[in-house]
């Protein structure tokens, strides 16, 4: 697992209060990990802070799963 992936997963475990083994690539924040609309906004903010990036709102809408978050951040950090 890449460094980015493990950091993303740690944030999700912390913010959503879920078990690490639930945080798989295809897991959806809202459908699988119990996030509501406020949790999702908070997650995006935490990703921005952790990786020192800006995720515009229209891009954030496309980040709905663990895998999508990791790919987006990996792309942004290239």
């Amino acid at each position: 697992m890449s460094d980015i992936a493990s950091r993303v997963k740690a944030i999700i475990v912390d913010k959503l209060g879920v078990d690490e083994n639930e945080v798989v690539q295809e897991a959806s924040f809202t459908n699988d990990l119990g996030a509501d609309s406020l949790d999702t906004v908070e997650l995006i903010m935490e990703f921005e802070k952790e990786f020192d990036i800006q995720i515009p709102d229209d891009q954030a809408e496309n980040i709905a799963t663990v895998g999508q978050a990791i790919s987006y951040i990996e792309e942004a950090k290239k």
Partner: peptide, 9 residues
């Protein structure tokens, strides 16, 4: 402004 979405609620 980087306010947490849970701030107000």
């Amino acid at each position: 402004p980087k306010f947490n979405p849970f701030f107000i609620p």
